[in-house]
Simulated scan of single mutants.
Amino acid sequence: MTREPHRPLRADAQRNRDKILAAAVRVFTEEGLDAHFERIAKEAGVGSGTLYRNFPTREALVEAAYRNELARLCDAAPDLLAAMPPHRALHAWTRHFMDYVTAKFGMAEALQAVVDSGTDPYNESHQLIQAALAALMDAGVAAGTIRADIRPADMFAALTGIALACGKPHQRDQAERLLDLTLDGLSPQCHPTRDRTAD
């Protein structure tokens, strides 16, 4: 997808935009598509004019809030790898994945309205998530802590299954148990491996 170049926002303007997007996720999750812009502005600690200057339509705000959650998830991968060993980074990232899923499910009604308007907020999301997973898993394989025969697409399918089964906030404990079970299955010490590049 081609995006027009744009000038970076000033630091204070970027902070306001970030606060608006975080507040939008919370409010759309709680109130659905009928959430008032004034409530979002109040939650973000900005004026209504600031919100409308950044996001003149409801669809623009919903799409930007979703894409921001997606970017936070994908950008977390290199940061985690820089801060901790690969197996711990993957463990931490799967928790970020569940946060992303919870936000996505909470905003489902609002996101559907964006889709109905002719925009695809999910464009490239699967590819971006799998690229983040690939970076984490490749680092684990190189470190000898992750089986070499499991592809990022396999792990994404497993995570998606967990998300569909228990992606609601009240199911978080069960989701984390299933995440741990899945991550345990990646250990090369418990399973014979087959090099995934051999196929």
Rank of each mutant, 00 (worst) to 15 (best):
Q127M: 13
G167W: 11
L178C: 12
L9N: 07
Y100V: 01
I20Y: 08
K42G: 06
L70M: 05
R58H: 09
V114N: 04
E109V: 04
R196Q: 08
T29S: 15
D184T: 09
T145W: 01
A103G: 06
R10K: 12
T2A: 13
P121S: 07
N123H: 15
A110S: 14
A163L: 03
K104T: 14
L136I: 09
Y100S: 00
D79Q: 14
A89N: 04
T193D: 14
P8C: 04
D79K: 12
A157M: 05
Q127L: 14
G32F: 09
L21T: 07
G167C: 09
H126W: 14
S117Y: 05
R39D: 13
S48C: 07
H96Q: 12
L164F: 06
F28C: 09
A103R: 04
A110M: 02
F97G: 02
H6T: 15
Q130D: 11
D184S: 10
E69A: 11
A157G: 10
G161T: 00
I20C: 06
A139N: 05
F55T: 07
N68Y: 11
S187H: 08
E38I: 12
Y66G: 00
A92T: 10
G140W: 00
T182V: 13
E69D: 07
D18V: 10
G47K: 09
G47S: 10
T119F: 08
T57P: 10
E4F: 14
T119G: 07
E109G: 11
A64C: 04
R39F: 03
Y52M: 10
R196M: 08
R39Q: 13
D149K: 03
I40Y: 07
F37L: 13
A163P: 01
G185E: 08
I20H: 06
P188G: 10
L136C: 07
L133M: 12
A76M: 01
F55K: 04
T57R: 10
A65Y: 04
E176H: 12
D18F: 07
A198Y: 08
P5G: 10
V25C: 09
H87R: 14
A83D: 12
D138S: 13
G140C: 10
E176K: 04
Q171D: 11
K42Y: 09
G140V: 02
A23F: 03
L159T: 00
A23G: 06
R10G: 15
P5V: 07
D75V: 03
C74M: 00
N123D: 15
H87F: 09
L186N: 10
D18N: 13
R15D: 12
N54P: 00
A24N: 03
G118W: 03
L80P: 06
A135I: 01
P188S: 08
A44S: 05
N16M: 08
M1S: 15
T145R: 03
I162F: 00
M107P: 00
F28Y: 14
S125F: 03
D195Y: 02
G161K: 00
R177G: 03
A83I: 00
A134S: 15
E69V: 06
